[in-house]
Amino acid sequence: MIALLVRRTLFLIPVLLGGSAIVFFLIHSAPGDPIDALMGMYASPEAREALRIKYGLNDPLLAQYFRWLGLVLQGDWGMSIQQRVPVLPLVLEKFWITILLTSAASLFAAIVGISAGIISAVKQNSWIDHLILILSVFALSMPPYWLGLIAIFVFSVQLGWLPTGGLYSFSGQMELFDVLKHLIMPAIVAGLTPAAIIARVTRAAMLEVLKLDFMTALRAKGLRERTIVLGHAFRNALPTVVSMTGLQIGYLILGAALFVEIIFSWPGLGLEIYKSVVGRDMPMMLGLVLFSTFIFVVLNLAVDIIYRVINPRVREA
């Protein structure tokens, strides 16, 4: 068990190294000149060249990569070309804003998805099961950037209940209630697709357990149906559900949240990624992608460890 954890952790290194190399070379072989984005088309050639040298853009790629890697390990992630501030502090600041959104979205997705999955499995083939399955297909098929627009149109433009976007109101300081009002729509929109996937996985995992022999043994003990379903069947399905939920949270931080942040102007990593793509801000994009990769990989490792810890068949083997 311990050895396995060590091995899994060590595997982070090649993934991070390989991942960072892929991303680095990709972005650096991109067409288009970041200097254009920075200085505009009409800067003098001398000024352009000076800047190129300053950012090391003339060196061979491999050299650029290793120099960059060395700096990254020292915490120097370079400067954002567009915003002219160091990348790492900016990324870390945006990270917490994204975490706020993804935690809320994950909470919503987990609660809705797991409940729907359990109900669906227990009432297999009933109308409510069919309804949940159809709704889950709908939720899976709904582009978050579209759903977000509809939500804004209905709840902000038409009804005026909720703000159209941002983290907090312009006038006030960050007050809890104000932030919550800004949080609710993006969190639900971002959580809907993961909720659907979690519901489907939970249902499948529960059905696997519900057909096992020990269900009869549990009934023979005289247990209430609720205890059987929640205390035993779900407990058995939990490792599968947890690892799937964890994976979804990983995708959520970087996937659905990206679009949702754009739509709702939520000032997190996703919005920064969008801005760096549009502005061809390579150091920023590189830093964001690298940081996200790191989070993604660590989260996957954490999910794997939790899976093992809550699964006695693996833990005690």
Partner: peptide, 8 residues
Amino acid sequence: VFGLPPIL
């Protein structure tokens, strides 16, 4: 490759 976040 699988270890990288797909959307990014």
